[in-house]
Simulated assay, not measured.
Amino acid sequence: MVVENGHVGVRQLSYLPAVGSPYGVEVMDFAALRAMDTHRRRVLPQRPDFHVLALVGSGGGGHEADFHDYRLTEGSVVWIRPGTVHRWSDVDACDGPLVLFRTGFLPGFTAAEAAAPACWQVDRQRLELALLAAEHLRREHAAAASTPRLASPELLSHLLAALVLRALPDATAPAGATPVDSRYTDVFRAYRAAVEEHFTDRHHVADYARALGCDARTLTRATRAATGTGAKTFLDQRILLEAKRLLAHTDVPVAGCARRLGFRDVGNFTTFFRRQAAVPPAAWRAAYGVAGARSGPASGL
C-alpha cells in the first residue's frame, strides 16, 4: 500500500495500490490500519503523496496535521492532502473507513472542496449517508478487484466524488470568501496547482499571472472567492507552511531552508518568516523542531 523514502524526522509515504487494485483508489478502515501497524508508526510524523479521507463512525481519539491538533469524535471527517505532515496521535478507539486516492483520481476539485479544512464535524444523519457512500465505494472496488470485467475506474471516480460531496462541511467557504463565480473556479484551480509546483522558485503573483495568461487582479479575485484571502497571501502562506515543515521536521540549517525555498540569502528568508510567523526561524525550530519533538511511539497512513 505504501513505501517510504528516507527523510530526517518525517516518514515519506508513496501510494502503491494493493494487489488487484490498480485504480488509484482504495478503501480500508481504522481497524485495518491498526492491524497492519503493529509497531505504532502511525503516531510518528509522516508525509503521504496521496489523499486520505477518513470518517469516524464511532469512538474517538486524536490527529495532528501541520502543527494543528484535532480531537476526533463520532462524526469527525479528516482530509489529509498530499504533502501534509501528519500523524494519527490516537486512533486506538476509532472506527470507520479510510479512503486512499491518488491526486487526479477525484474529478476536478471545486473551490468548495479546496476550501474544506483538514478536519471537521458532520451531524449524525449526514454521517450515516457518508458511511453508506463509503461502503458503496468499498463494495464496487472489491468487485472490480475480484472480477475485472466489472472494473470501471470512471464509476469508482464518481463514487468517490459523491462521497466527498456528502462529507463536505455545511459551510465550506471560509471567512472573507465571496460567492464563487464559475469563471473563477478554474482560474483558482490552475493557480493553486501552479503554486504547488513552483512556490520554491516563484515568489511573485505577477509571475504566476503571466504563466497562466491572466492578470494579477484576476488571480486575486479568484483566490479570494475560493479561500477568503488574496493571491499574494495564499502564496506566502504556502511558502511559510513549507518553511515550518523544514524547520520542524528536518535538521537542514536555516540557510539551507532558505535556499530550498528560493530565497536569495538567509536574511531575506528570516525577514519573511518573522513577518509571517511573528517569530524568527530559530525560535520556531526550538519550539517545534525534531530536537524538541514529542518522544515515545508516535505514525501508519
Rank of each mutant, 00 (worst) to 15 (best):
F30C: 04
F30A: 07
A31P: 00
A31L: 13
A32I: 05
A32V: 08
A32Y: 06
L33F: 06
L33K: 04
R34A: 02
R34Q: 07
R34T: 04
R34W: 06
A35P: 00
M36L: 12
M36F: 05
D37L: 03
D37T: 08
D37Q: 03
T38V: 09
T38K: 09
T38M: 08
T38F: 12
T38N: 08
H39Q: 12
H39I: 12
H39D: 14
H39Y: 11
H39C: 01
H39F: 08
R40H: 12
R40V: 09
R40K: 15
R40S: 04
R40W: 09
R41D: 07
R41W: 06
R41G: 12
R41V: 03
R41A: 11
R42T: 06
V43W: 00
V43R: 15
V43A: 15
V43M: 13
L44I: 05
L44Y: 10
P45K: 10
P45T: 10
P45F: 02
Q46A: 14
Q46G: 04
R47H: 00
R47W: 01
R47I: 07
R47D: 06
R47G: 00
P48V: 05
P48C: 11
D49M: 07
D49H: 00
F50I: 11
F50H: 12
F50N: 08
F50C: 06
F50A: 01
F50Q: 01
H51S: 01
H51Y: 14
H51G: 00
V52R: 13
V52Y: 01
L53I: 07
L53K: 04
L55Q: 01
L55E: 02
L55I: 03
L55W: 04
S58D: 15
S58N: 09
S58A: 15
G60I: 09
G60F: 06
G61M: 01
G61P: 07
G62Y: 07
H63Y: 14
H63S: 03
H63M: 13
H63W: 15
E64L: 03
E64Q: 15
E64I: 14
D66V: 02
D66Q: 08
D66N: 13
F67K: 06
F67G: 01
F67M: 10
F67V: 05
H68Q: 13
H68N: 08
D69T: 14
D69S: 14
D69V: 12
Y70I: 05
Y70P: 00
R71P: 09
R71A: 15
R71S: 15
R71N: 09
L72C: 12
T73H: 02
T73I: 05
T73G: 01
E74K: 15
G75D: 04
G75N: 13
V77I: 14
V77C: 02
